[in-house]
Amino acid sequence: MTAKVAPAGVWFITPGHASECFPTAYQCGADVALVDLEDSVPAVAKSSARAAACGFFAASAVTGTTLGVRISSPATLDGVRDLAAIAAFPRKPRIVLIPKVESPRDIAIVAGVLDTPGYTPLLYALIESPYAMEVLPSIVRADRIAGVLFGTADYAAATGSTMAWEAMLHARSTLVTSAAAAGIPAIDSPFFDLDDLDGLRREAEQVKSLGFAGKSCVHPRQLSTVTEVFGPTDEEIAAARAIVEAAETAGGRIVRVGHRMIGPPMVAAARSLLARAGTPREEHA
């Protein structure tokens, strides 16, 4: 099992062979910044991307952002080379995103290569195929899994569907339900229309309402929109404080707050929101 809580919120992905984009990843304010060694890197640039990724993690003074890497599938030669390279990095990624996951074995392979007594990265499974959906209960309960991401592009290609909201709703609902049952976060796919910020906001709000803990971005212009959606508002924080205070005053009994009856599930959700907002407990105790 992992030693720390897995990051949620806003994820930003930058191509591994484009080192000139690394400063943007460090400074964009995302909760997680991933350097990509998989789909965004052409085959001829894979080797140079691995070398550049080593430098990505060597950066100093990166604060507030967790750094990670998306490798190629561990069932491919590029994936094997990625893992060998990462194992030799002087400074290593906190998160490793594993694509094309269709079995707990994929996670076990990565953990077997990278885990050492002093280093156990957070391993995220990228779920992007119909078969992965069928075996999802076994994947989300893998010993070293920290969370899951949804990949709409590959999933739509495999099913022959579009990436429209209605077409992806069943898969998204299945993923977030399985993740919640296993107690791990689910992060949503990027929104690929870079010029449709209204569509991005609408989709981010919809996946948040489903229960996703965050959403990934592939361009800096998307970050502020996704941050606004997934960052707790002042009103949400105030409401959560009121719920926790009322519950503690009531000694854990069901209590009325405003027009709502509040029971243990709502109190747990309020505490979780305050924790994500970084609100010290004494402020709402």
Rank of each mutant, 00 (worst) to 15 (best):
G9Q: 14
S173Q: 13
A247T: 05
D82E: 07
M168Y: 07
S129N: 11
A167V: 06
F192E: 10
M261P: 04
A87V: 01
A167L: 03
A240P: 08
I13T: 12
K4M: 13
T66G: 03
A58M: 12
M266A: 14
F57I: 11
E166R: 08
H219E: 15
P7Y: 02
S209T: 13
V140Y: 04
V96G: 04
R141L: 03
A275H: 15
A238R: 10
V41R: 09
P23F: 02
F89M: 01
V80E: 13
P7T: 04
F230Y: 15
D188P: 03
R50E: 08
D106K: 01
A45P: 05
E20G: 04
L223D: 08
V10P: 13
P7K: 08
V267H: 10
V35K: 03
I95S: 00
R201C: 03
H284D: 04
P190V: 15
G118A: 07
T152C: 14
W11N: 15
D193G: 10
V135Q: 00
E283G: 03
P130R: 03
S138K: 07
S72E: 08
I109D: 02
A45W: 09
D78P: 04
T152W: 01
T66H: 06
T279C: 09
P15F: 14
D234L: 11
L77W: 12
A186G: 04
A164S: 13
A277I: 03
I262S: 04
A51T: 07
P7L: 06
T24C: 12
Q27T: 04
I95H: 00
F56V: 08
F150K: 01
P232H: 10
I184W: 07
A164F: 02
V96N: 00
A25D: 02
R70C: 10
E228D: 15
I109E: 01
E134G: 01
R253F: 14
D143W: 02
L83K: 02
Y124F: 15
M168I: 02
D31R: 08
L67M: 08
V10H: 08
T279V: 14
V32C: 09
P117N: 10
D188R: 06
E282M: 07
P220Y: 00
F22M: 11
P74W: 07
A84T: 06
T116E: 14
A146L: 06
A61K: 09
V32T: 09
D106T: 02
C28V: 15
T66N: 09
T279S: 03
A3S: 11
K46M: 02
G211L: 07
V218F: 12
E282D: 15
D39M: 11
A285C: 07
P90R: 13
L273D: 05
G278Q: 02
E283L: 10
T159P: 03
V207T: 11
G211Y: 09
D143H: 05
D154A: 05
A158Y: 00
A181K: 03
P130F: 01
G147S: 08
P15C: 14
E228I: 04
D78F: 15
G79E: 10
L200V: 10
A285I: 11
